[in-house]
Design a protein around this nucleic acid. Structure first.
Lengths: 196, 196
DNA sequence: TCGCTATGGAACAGTGTGTTCAATAGCGTT
DNA sequence: AACGCTATTGAACACACTGTTCCATAGCGA
Protein backbone atom coordinates (compact mmCIF):
# COMPACT_ATOMS: atom_id res chain seq x y z
CA UNK A 1 0.00 0.00 0.00
CA UNK A 2 1.22 3.45 -0.82
CA UNK A 3 -0.63 5.47 1.79
CA UNK A 4 0.20 4.40 5.31
CA UNK A 5 -3.10 3.02 6.53
CA UNK A 6 -4.39 4.95 9.49
CA UNK A 7 -5.40 3.14 12.62
CA UNK A 8 -9.11 2.48 12.49
CA UNK A 9 -9.50 3.58 16.10
CA UNK A 10 -8.23 7.03 15.25
CA UNK A 11 -10.62 7.43 12.37
CA UNK A 12 -13.49 6.26 14.50
CA UNK A 13 -12.69 8.63 17.37
CA UNK A 14 -12.22 11.68 15.18
CA UNK A 15 -15.37 10.91 13.27
CA UNK A 16 -17.35 10.55 16.49
CA UNK A 17 -16.02 13.84 17.79
CA UNK A 18 -16.74 15.80 14.62
CA UNK A 19 -20.23 14.39 14.38
CA UNK A 20 -20.93 15.19 18.01
CA UNK A 21 -19.63 18.71 17.54
CA UNK A 22 -21.84 19.38 14.55
CA UNK A 23 -24.98 18.07 16.16
CA UNK A 24 -24.28 20.03 19.33
CA UNK A 25 -23.63 23.22 17.40
CA UNK A 26 -27.08 22.94 15.94
CA UNK A 27 -28.57 22.56 19.39
CA UNK A 28 -26.70 25.04 21.53
CA UNK A 29 -24.40 27.03 19.31
CA UNK A 30 -20.65 26.86 19.46
CA UNK A 31 -19.82 29.27 22.26
CA UNK A 32 -22.21 27.70 24.72
CA UNK A 33 -20.54 24.37 24.18
CA UNK A 34 -18.06 22.66 26.49
CA UNK A 35 -15.54 19.96 25.78
CA UNK A 36 -17.46 17.98 28.36
CA UNK A 37 -20.61 18.17 26.23
CA UNK A 38 -18.75 16.98 23.20
CA UNK A 39 -17.13 13.95 24.75
CA UNK A 40 -20.35 12.99 26.48
CA UNK A 41 -22.22 13.08 23.21
CA UNK A 42 -19.47 11.33 21.31
CA UNK A 43 -19.04 8.85 24.12
CA UNK A 44 -15.31 9.32 24.09
CA UNK A 45 -12.93 9.58 26.99
CA UNK A 46 -11.70 12.96 28.13
CA UNK A 47 -8.07 12.00 27.76
CA UNK A 48 -8.78 10.76 24.26
CA UNK A 49 -10.15 14.11 23.19
CA UNK A 50 -7.04 15.90 24.30
CA UNK A 51 -4.91 13.31 22.58
CA UNK A 52 -6.35 14.49 19.26
CA UNK A 53 -7.17 18.15 19.67
CA UNK A 54 -5.90 21.02 21.74
CA UNK A 55 -9.34 22.37 22.53
CA UNK A 56 -12.80 22.73 21.04
CA UNK A 57 -11.68 25.36 18.56
CA UNK A 58 -9.02 23.08 17.23
CA UNK A 59 -11.66 20.46 16.62
CA UNK A 60 -13.84 23.02 14.89
CA UNK A 61 -11.05 24.06 12.58
CA UNK A 62 -10.45 20.53 11.45
CA UNK A 63 -14.19 20.10 10.95
CA UNK A 64 -14.48 23.14 8.71
CA UNK A 65 -11.49 22.15 6.66
CA UNK A 66 -13.78 20.01 4.51
CA UNK A 67 -15.88 22.91 3.31
CA UNK A 68 -12.83 25.00 2.60
CA UNK A 69 -11.30 22.36 0.38
CA UNK A 70 -14.56 21.80 -1.45
CA UNK A 71 -14.91 25.48 -2.31
CA UNK A 72 -11.27 25.79 -3.30
CA UNK A 73 -11.66 22.83 -5.60
CA UNK A 74 -14.73 24.34 -7.18
CA UNK A 75 -12.93 27.61 -7.71
CA UNK A 76 -9.86 25.93 -9.14
CA UNK A 77 -11.98 24.23 -11.76
CA UNK A 78 -13.72 27.41 -12.79
CA UNK A 79 -10.49 29.37 -12.98
CA UNK A 80 -8.79 26.77 -15.14
CA UNK A 81 -11.36 26.72 -17.91
CA UNK A 82 -11.78 29.84 -20.03
CA UNK A 83 -10.72 32.56 -17.65
CA UNK A 84 -11.72 36.18 -18.05
CA UNK A 85 -15.37 35.42 -18.64
CA UNK A 86 -17.59 37.38 -16.31
CA UNK A 87 -19.76 34.33 -15.91
CA UNK A 88 -16.91 32.42 -14.44
CA UNK A 89 -15.80 35.04 -11.98
CA UNK A 90 -16.58 34.16 -8.39
CA UNK A 91 -17.59 30.69 -9.41
CA UNK A 92 -17.34 29.55 -5.83
CA UNK A 93 -19.99 31.97 -4.62
CA UNK A 94 -22.81 30.11 -6.32
CA UNK A 95 -21.52 26.87 -4.94
CA UNK A 96 -21.35 28.34 -1.48
CA UNK A 97 -24.84 29.79 -1.51
CA UNK A 98 -26.13 26.47 -2.77
CA UNK A 99 -24.28 24.60 -0.12
CA UNK A 100 -25.59 26.95 2.54
CA UNK A 101 -29.09 26.48 1.24
CA UNK A 102 -28.88 22.73 1.37
CA UNK A 103 -27.49 22.68 4.87
CA UNK A 104 -29.25 25.74 6.11
CA UNK A 105 -29.74 24.32 9.58
CA UNK A 106 -26.05 23.79 10.09
CA UNK A 107 -25.14 27.08 8.50
CA UNK A 108 -27.63 29.06 10.47
CA UNK A 109 -26.40 27.46 13.66
CA UNK A 110 -22.78 28.02 12.73
CA UNK A 111 -22.91 31.57 11.42
CA UNK A 112 -25.97 32.95 13.16
CA UNK A 113 -25.96 35.34 16.04
CA UNK A 114 -26.35 32.64 18.64
CA UNK A 115 -23.31 30.74 17.65
CA UNK A 116 -19.91 32.02 18.37
CA UNK A 117 -17.96 34.55 16.47
CA UNK A 118 -14.98 32.24 16.36
CA UNK A 119 -16.66 30.39 13.55
CA UNK A 120 -17.50 33.64 11.83
CA UNK A 121 -13.87 34.63 11.98
CA UNK A 122 -12.71 31.36 10.45
CA UNK A 123 -15.32 31.69 7.76
CA UNK A 124 -14.36 35.27 7.03
CA UNK A 125 -10.72 34.32 6.55
CA UNK A 126 -11.75 31.54 4.24
CA UNK A 127 -13.68 33.96 2.06
CA UNK A 128 -10.78 36.39 1.99
CA UNK A 129 -8.50 33.70 0.62
CA UNK A 130 -11.01 32.70 -2.02
CA UNK A 131 -11.67 36.25 -3.13
CA UNK A 132 -7.99 37.12 -3.23
CA UNK A 133 -7.49 34.32 -5.70
CA UNK A 134 -10.08 35.84 -8.01
CA UNK A 135 -8.78 39.36 -7.71
CA UNK A 136 -5.29 38.14 -8.38
CA UNK A 137 -6.47 36.36 -11.50
CA UNK A 138 -7.94 39.55 -12.86
CA UNK A 139 -5.00 41.80 -12.04
CA UNK A 140 -2.06 39.61 -12.97
CA UNK A 141 0.30 42.34 -14.09
CA UNK A 142 2.71 42.02 -11.20
CA UNK A 143 0.35 44.25 -9.34
CA UNK A 144 -0.26 41.48 -6.89
CA UNK A 145 0.49 42.84 -3.48
CA UNK A 146 -0.31 46.46 -4.17
CA UNK A 147 -2.38 48.17 -1.54
CA UNK A 148 -5.47 48.98 -3.63
CA UNK A 149 -5.66 45.41 -4.83
CA UNK A 150 -5.64 44.05 -1.33
CA UNK A 151 -8.12 46.67 -0.24
CA UNK A 152 -10.49 45.53 -2.95
CA UNK A 153 -10.06 41.95 -1.86
CA UNK A 154 -10.87 42.82 1.71
CA UNK A 155 -13.82 44.89 0.65
CA UNK A 156 -15.41 42.25 -1.52
CA UNK A 157 -14.74 39.44 0.94
CA UNK A 158 -16.23 41.52 3.72
CA UNK A 159 -19.25 42.29 1.59
CA UNK A 160 -19.79 38.66 0.75
CA UNK A 161 -19.33 37.73 4.38
CA UNK A 162 -21.90 40.28 5.45
CA UNK A 163 -24.42 39.14 2.88
CA UNK A 164 -24.06 35.47 3.72
CA UNK A 165 -24.36 36.04 7.45
CA UNK A 166 -27.44 38.14 6.96
CA UNK A 167 -29.02 35.84 4.42
CA UNK A 168 -28.48 32.74 6.51
CA UNK A 169 -29.55 34.33 9.75
CA UNK A 170 -32.67 35.95 8.44
CA UNK A 171 -35.48 34.00 6.92
CA UNK A 172 -33.54 33.42 3.72
CA UNK A 173 -36.39 34.82 1.73
CA UNK A 174 -34.18 35.35 -1.31
CA UNK A 175 -33.53 32.34 -3.47
CA UNK A 176 -30.03 31.11 -4.05
CA UNK A 177 -30.17 32.47 -7.59
CA UNK A 178 -31.30 35.92 -6.49
CA UNK A 179 -28.83 36.40 -3.70
CA UNK A 180 -25.97 35.14 -5.80
CA UNK A 181 -26.94 37.38 -8.69
CA UNK A 182 -27.16 40.34 -6.37
CA UNK A 183 -23.76 39.64 -4.94
CA UNK A 184 -22.20 39.40 -8.37
CA UNK A 185 -23.85 42.60 -9.49
CA UNK A 186 -22.37 44.34 -6.47
CA UNK A 187 -18.95 42.76 -6.56
CA UNK A 188 -18.05 42.81 -10.22
CA UNK A 189 -17.93 46.61 -10.56
CA UNK A 190 -15.51 46.65 -7.66
CA UNK A 191 -13.40 44.04 -9.38
CA UNK A 192 -13.17 46.28 -12.40
CA UNK A 193 -11.66 48.96 -10.26
CA UNK A 194 -8.63 46.70 -10.36
CA UNK A 195 -8.61 45.92 -14.03
CA UNK A 196 -8.98 49.63 -14.45
CA UNK B 1 -30.94 71.11 39.93
CA UNK B 2 -32.94 69.50 37.21
CA UNK B 3 -30.81 66.48 36.44
CA UNK B 4 -30.72 64.04 39.32
CA UNK B 5 -27.11 64.16 40.35
CA UNK B 6 -25.49 60.74 40.25
CA UNK B 7 -23.66 59.44 43.25
CA UNK B 8 -20.01 60.25 42.86
CA UNK B 9 -19.06 56.76 44.00
CA UNK B 10 -20.90 55.24 41.08
CA UNK B 11 -19.22 57.50 38.56
CA UNK B 12 -15.86 56.74 40.08
CA UNK B 13 -16.37 52.98 40.05
CA UNK B 14 -17.66 52.82 36.49
CA UNK B 15 -14.88 55.05 35.29
CA UNK B 16 -12.27 52.89 36.98
CA UNK B 17 -13.73 49.75 35.44
CA UNK B 18 -13.91 51.14 31.91
CA UNK B 19 -10.38 52.46 32.11
CA UNK B 20 -9.10 49.17 33.44
CA UNK B 21 -10.91 47.30 30.68
CA UNK B 22 -9.43 49.44 27.94
CA UNK B 23 -5.89 49.21 29.22
CA UNK B 24 -6.20 45.48 29.66
CA UNK B 25 -7.61 45.02 26.17
CA UNK B 26 -4.50 46.64 24.80
CA UNK B 27 -2.32 44.26 26.75
CA UNK B 28 -4.02 40.91 26.43
CA UNK B 29 -6.96 41.30 24.09
CA UNK B 30 -10.55 40.95 25.15
CA UNK B 31 -11.10 37.20 25.04
CA UNK B 32 -8.09 36.42 27.16
CA UNK B 33 -9.41 38.71 29.84
CA UNK B 34 -11.15 37.71 33.06
CA UNK B 35 -13.40 39.68 35.34
CA UNK B 36 -10.78 38.97 37.96
CA UNK B 37 -8.16 40.81 35.90
CA UNK B 38 -10.42 43.79 35.50
CA UNK B 39 -11.30 44.25 39.15
CA UNK B 40 -7.70 43.71 40.18
CA UNK B 41 -6.53 46.40 37.81
CA UNK B 42 -9.36 48.74 38.69
CA UNK B 43 -8.89 47.99 42.36
CA UNK B 44 -12.59 47.44 42.80
CA UNK B 45 -14.38 44.81 44.82
CA UNK B 46 -15.78 41.78 43.10
CA UNK B 47 -19.26 42.36 44.46
CA UNK B 48 -19.08 45.93 43.25
CA UNK B 49 -18.40 44.85 39.71
CA UNK B 50 -21.44 42.65 39.60
CA UNK B 51 -23.51 45.40 41.12
CA UNK B 52 -22.91 47.43 37.96
CA UNK B 53 -22.51 44.95 35.13
CA UNK B 54 -23.69 41.45 34.34
CA UNK B 55 -20.36 40.31 32.96
CA UNK B 56 -17.35 41.56 31.06
CA UNK B 57 -19.27 41.83 27.80
CA UNK B 58 -21.83 44.04 29.42
CA UNK B 59 -19.04 46.33 30.53
CA UNK B 60 -17.60 46.31 27.03
CA UNK B 61 -20.90 47.28 25.48
CA UNK B 62 -21.26 50.26 27.74
CA UNK B 63 -17.68 51.24 26.94
CA UNK B 64 -18.24 51.17 23.20
CA UNK B 65 -21.46 53.10 23.41
CA UNK B 66 -19.43 56.31 23.34
CA UNK B 67 -17.99 55.66 19.89
CA UNK B 68 -21.36 54.66 18.50
CA UNK B 69 -22.99 57.87 19.60
CA UNK B 70 -20.13 59.95 18.29
CA UNK B 71 -20.39 58.42 14.82
CA UNK B 72 -24.16 58.66 14.76
CA UNK B 73 -23.93 62.30 15.66
CA UNK B 74 -21.43 62.92 12.91
CA UNK B 75 -23.64 61.17 10.41
CA UNK B 76 -26.74 63.02 11.53
CA UNK B 77 -25.01 66.33 10.92
CA UNK B 78 -23.88 65.35 7.45
CA UNK B 79 -27.26 64.03 6.46
CA UNK B 80 -29.09 67.13 7.61
CA UNK B 81 -27.12 69.59 5.52
CA UNK B 82 -27.44 69.45 1.75
CA UNK B 83 -28.32 65.83 1.18
CA UNK B 84 -27.81 64.05 -2.14
CA UNK B 85 -24.29 65.30 -2.65
CA UNK B 86 -21.87 62.48 -3.26
CA UNK B 87 -19.35 64.23 -1.06
CA UNK B 88 -21.66 63.95 1.88
CA UNK B 89 -22.50 60.30 1.48
CA UNK B 90 -20.90 58.08 4.11
CA UNK B 91 -19.78 61.12 6.02
CA UNK B 92 -19.19 58.95 9.05
CA UNK B 93 -16.62 56.78 7.32
CA UNK B 94 -14.01 59.52 7.22
CA UNK B 95 -14.65 60.29 10.84
CA UNK B 96 -14.27 56.64 11.71
CA UNK B 97 -11.02 56.13 9.85
CA UNK B 98 -9.67 59.28 11.46
CA UNK B 99 -10.73 58.14 14.87
CA UNK B 100 -9.18 54.73 14.28
CA UNK B 101 -5.99 56.39 13.17
CA UNK B 102 -5.76 58.54 16.25
CA UNK B 103 -6.37 55.67 18.61
CA UNK B 104 -4.76 53.00 16.54
CA UNK B 105 -3.40 51.16 19.55
CA UNK B 106 -6.82 50.72 21.04
CA UNK B 107 -8.41 49.90 17.72
CA UNK B 108 -5.81 47.39 16.78
CA UNK B 109 -6.18 45.70 20.12
CA UNK B 110 -9.95 45.77 19.90
CA UNK B 111 -10.47 44.67 16.33
CA UNK B 112 -7.31 42.76 15.60
CA UNK B 113 -6.97 39.04 15.37
CA UNK B 114 -5.78 38.64 18.92
CA UNK B 115 -8.73 40.29 20.50
CA UNK B 116 -12.07 38.64 20.62
CA UNK B 117 -14.64 38.42 17.97
CA UNK B 118 -17.30 39.62 20.35
CA UNK B 119 -16.03 43.11 19.81
CA UNK B 120 -15.91 42.57 16.09
CA UNK B 121 -19.53 41.52 16.13
CA UNK B 122 -20.60 44.59 18.06
CA UNK B 123 -18.64 46.75 15.68
CA UNK B 124 -20.10 45.05 12.63
CA UNK B 125 -23.64 45.66 13.85
CA UNK B 126 -22.81 49.26 14.49
CA UNK B 127 -21.62 49.68 10.92
CA UNK B 128 -24.72 47.98 9.56
CA UNK B 129 -26.94 50.47 11.34
CA UNK B 130 -24.92 53.41 10.09
CA UNK B 131 -24.86 52.18 6.51
CA UNK B 132 -28.56 51.38 6.51
CA UNK B 133 -29.26 54.97 7.39
CA UNK B 134 -27.36 56.11 4.31
CA UNK B 135 -28.94 53.62 1.99
CA UNK B 136 -32.35 54.54 3.27
CA UNK B 137 -31.63 58.21 2.63
CA UNK B 138 -30.80 57.50 -0.98
CA UNK B 139 -33.71 55.19 -1.69
CA UNK B 140 -36.55 56.94 0.08
CA UNK B 141 -39.33 55.97 -2.27
CA UNK B 142 -41.06 53.58 0.15
CA UNK B 143 -38.60 51.01 -1.02
CA UNK B 144 -37.26 50.79 2.47
CA UNK B 145 -37.49 47.19 3.52
CA UNK B 146 -37.19 45.61 0.09
CA UNK B 147 -34.80 42.73 -0.13
CA UNK B 148 -32.28 44.21 -2.57
CA UNK B 149 -31.99 47.36 -0.50
CA UNK B 150 -31.18 45.41 2.62
CA UNK B 151 -28.79 43.21 0.68
CA UNK B 152 -26.92 46.27 -0.45
CA UNK B 153 -26.77 47.55 3.09
CA UNK B 154 -25.34 44.29 4.32
CA UNK B 155 -22.89 44.16 1.46
CA UNK B 156 -21.52 47.64 1.96
CA UNK B 157 -21.39 47.34 5.71
CA UNK B 158 -19.60 44.04 5.41
CA UNK B 159 -17.16 45.55 2.95
CA UNK B 160 -16.43 48.47 5.21
CA UNK B 161 -16.05 46.13 8.13
CA UNK B 162 -13.58 44.00 6.23
CA UNK B 163 -11.54 46.97 5.11
CA UNK B 164 -11.35 48.50 8.57
CA UNK B 165 -10.36 45.24 10.24
CA UNK B 166 -7.67 44.67 7.66
CA UNK B 167 -6.41 48.22 7.67
CA UNK B 168 -6.19 48.39 11.43
CA UNK B 169 -4.67 44.98 11.84
CA UNK B 170 -2.06 45.33 9.19
CA UNK B 171 0.59 47.96 9.24
CA UNK B 172 -1.86 50.67 8.23
CA UNK B 173 0.34 51.67 5.37
CA UNK B 174 -2.47 53.53 3.67
CA UNK B 175 -3.23 56.99 4.92
CA UNK B 176 -6.63 57.85 6.26
CA UNK B 177 -7.36 59.82 3.11
CA UNK B 178 -6.40 56.97 0.82
CA UNK B 179 -8.27 54.24 2.56
CA UNK B 180 -11.36 56.39 2.91
CA UNK B 181 -11.22 57.39 -0.73
CA UNK B 182 -10.86 53.78 -1.76
CA UNK B 183 -13.79 52.76 0.31
CA UNK B 184 -15.99 55.45 -1.17
CA UNK B 185 -14.94 54.56 -4.66
CA UNK B 186 -15.94 50.97 -4.00
CA UNK B 187 -19.12 51.66 -2.10
CA UNK B 188 -20.76 54.42 -4.08
CA UNK B 189 -21.33 52.39 -7.24
CA UNK B 190 -23.11 49.83 -5.09
CA UNK B 191 -25.25 52.55 -3.62
CA UNK B 192 -26.28 53.55 -7.10
CA UNK B 193 -27.60 50.08 -7.66
CA UNK B 194 -30.34 51.23 -5.32
CA UNK B 195 -31.02 54.59 -6.89
CA UNK B 196 -31.18 52.56 -10.05
C1' DT C 1 -25.07 65.71 61.68
C1' DC C 2 -27.87 61.94 59.82
C1' DG C 3 -29.83 58.49 56.95
C1' DC C 4 -29.08 55.98 52.89
C1' DT C 5 -26.50 53.39 49.65
C1' DA C 6 -22.38 51.94 47.35
C1' DT C 7 -18.44 49.47 48.46
C1' DG C 8 -15.17 45.91 50.20
C1' DG C 9 -13.84 41.42 51.38
C1' DA C 10 -14.48 36.97 52.23
C1' DA C 11 -16.53 32.82 51.49
C1' DC C 12 -19.46 29.90 48.63
C1' DA C 13 -20.90 26.22 45.26
C1' DG C 14 -20.66 25.31 40.70
C1' DT C 15 -18.49 24.50 36.24
C1' DG C 16 -14.98 23.86 33.11
C1' DT C 17 -10.19 23.20 31.84
C1' DG C 18 -6.15 20.61 30.57
C1' DT C 19 -2.92 17.00 32.49
C1' DT C 20 -1.39 12.74 34.43
C1' DC C 21 -1.33 7.72 35.20
C1' DA C 22 -1.77 2.85 35.00
C1' DA C 23 -4.79 -0.54 33.20
C1' DT C 24 -7.02 -2.30 29.19
C1' DA C 25 -8.78 -2.91 24.63
C1' DG C 26 -8.05 -3.35 19.94
C1' DC C 27 -5.31 -2.65 15.85
C1' DG C 28 -1.99 -4.23 12.12
C1' DT C 29 1.48 -7.49 11.30
C1' DT C 30 3.90 -11.67 11.44
C1' DA D 1 -3.63 -17.27 16.01
C1' DA D 2 -0.36 -14.91 18.72
C1' DC D 3 2.39 -10.90 19.12
C1' DG D 4 3.85 -6.17 20.09
C1' DC D 5 2.43 -1.62 19.80
C1' DT D 6 -0.57 2.15 20.44
C1' DA D 7 -5.03 4.21 21.19
C1' DT D 8 -8.41 4.46 24.57
C1' DT D 9 -10.23 4.77 29.09
C1' DG D 10 -11.65 6.50 33.61
C1' DA D 11 -10.37 8.47 37.56
C1' DA D 12 -8.20 11.87 39.94
C1' DC D 13 -5.72 16.08 39.93
C1' DA D 14 -4.73 21.27 40.57
C1' DC D 15 -6.20 25.28 38.89
C1' DA D 16 -8.94 29.24 37.28
C1' DC D 17 -13.02 31.70 36.73
C1' DT D 18 -17.81 32.61 37.47
C1' DG D 19 -21.67 34.75 39.72
C1' DT D 20 -23.90 35.11 44.35
C1' DT D 21 -24.43 36.09 49.17
C1' DC D 22 -23.48 38.18 53.52
C1' DC D 23 -22.42 41.93 56.67
C1' DA D 24 -19.64 45.56 58.26
C1' DT D 25 -18.11 49.97 56.79
C1' DA D 26 -17.07 54.01 54.27
C1' DG D 27 -18.64 57.88 51.95
C1' DC D 28 -22.22 60.37 49.69
C1' DG D 29 -25.97 64.02 49.56
C1' DA D 30 -29.05 66.68 52.17
Amino acid sequence: MAAQAIDRRIQRTQELLKTALMSLIQEKGFEALSVQDIIDRANVGRATFYAHFDNKEDLLRSGIEGLRQSLRECQRKALSQTPRTEERVFAFSREMFTHANEHRDVFRAMLGKRSGSVIQQLFHRMLIDLVREEVKALAPRGDTSSAPTETITQYIAGGLFGVVIWWVDGRMRLSVEDVDALFRRLAIPALKATAR
